[in-house]
Computed example of a mutant assay.
Amino acid sequence: MVSSTASDVDPDSPTEFQYWEADGVVWGHYSGDTVTHGRFVGTRDGDLVSISYAHALKAGGKAGGHSSSRVEAGDDGRLRLVEEFTFEGDDTVHVSVCAEVS
């Protein structure tokens, strides 16, 4: 993760995501920064990825919600996910950007 409107991203220990896909179904896990461990599952249609997620917070507690991401090619050729997401119980739309690690 390189940026998020929901929290400051620690550049030395950002949240890192691993994605897998088969037949348009996506799933994976993530950890780092404010997240102890998280899981997601969803679908990809063209350049749109829609997922539901849940994670445990390092500060205690948990969070979950839904997101939609656009898959884009960055200027450096790496893929980027520009994600709009909400937390359960909060209708505020947040935006994050994740960049492929080469």
Rank of each mutant, 00 (worst) to 15 (best):
M1N: 14
M1C: 07
M1T: 14
V2I: 15
T5P: 09
T5L: 09
A6S: 15
S7A: 13
D8W: 01
V9C: 01
V9K: 00
D10E: 06
P11F: 01
P11N: 01
P11T: 00
P11Y: 00
P11D: 02
D12R: 09
D12I: 02
D12V: 06
D12Q: 11
P14L: 05
P14A: 02
P14D: 06
T15G: 04
T15F: 02
T15I: 15
F17H: 06
Q18R: 11
Q18H: 11
Y19M: 10
Y19C: 03
W20Q: 13
W20G: 12
D23I: 01
G24E: 06
V25S: 04
V26I: 06
G28P: 00
G28I: 01
Y30D: 00
Y30M: 01
S31W: 06
G32P: 02
G32N: 05
D33R: 08
D33N: 11
T34K: 11
T34D: 14
T34G: 06
T34H: 12
V35K: 02
T36K: 09
T36C: 02
T36M: 05
H37I: 11
G38V: 04
R39Q: 08
R39F: 10
F40V: 02
V41M: 12
G42N: 03
G42K: 01
T43P: 04
G46P: 08
G46E: 11
D47E: 14
L48K: 14
V49C: 01
S50P: 04
I51V: 15
S52I: 11
Y53K: 03
Y53T: 03
Y53V: 07
A54I: 11
A54P: 00
A54F: 10
H55Y: 15
H55Q: 10
A56C: 01
L57N: 15
L57A: 12
K58F: 04
K58N: 12
A59H: 03
A59D: 11
G60S: 07
G61I: 04
G61V: 06
A63S: 15
A63M: 12
G64A: 12
G65E: 05
G65W: 06
H66E: 13
H66G: 09
S67E: 15
S67T: 12
V71A: 05
E72H: 10
G74V: 10
G74F: 07
G74H: 07
D75H: 08
D75N: 10
D75Q: 09
D76N: 12
D76H: 04
D76G: 04
G77S: 07
R78Q: 13
L81K: 09
V82H: 12
E84D: 15
F85L: 08
F85A: 06
T86S: 09
T86L: 05
T86W: 01
T86R: 10
D90M: 00
D90C: 02
T92F: 00
V93W: 03
V95N: 12
V95R: 14
S96H: 07
S96W: 06
S96P: 04
S96Y: 07
V97P: 08
A99I: 14
A99W: 06
V101W: 03
S102C: 02
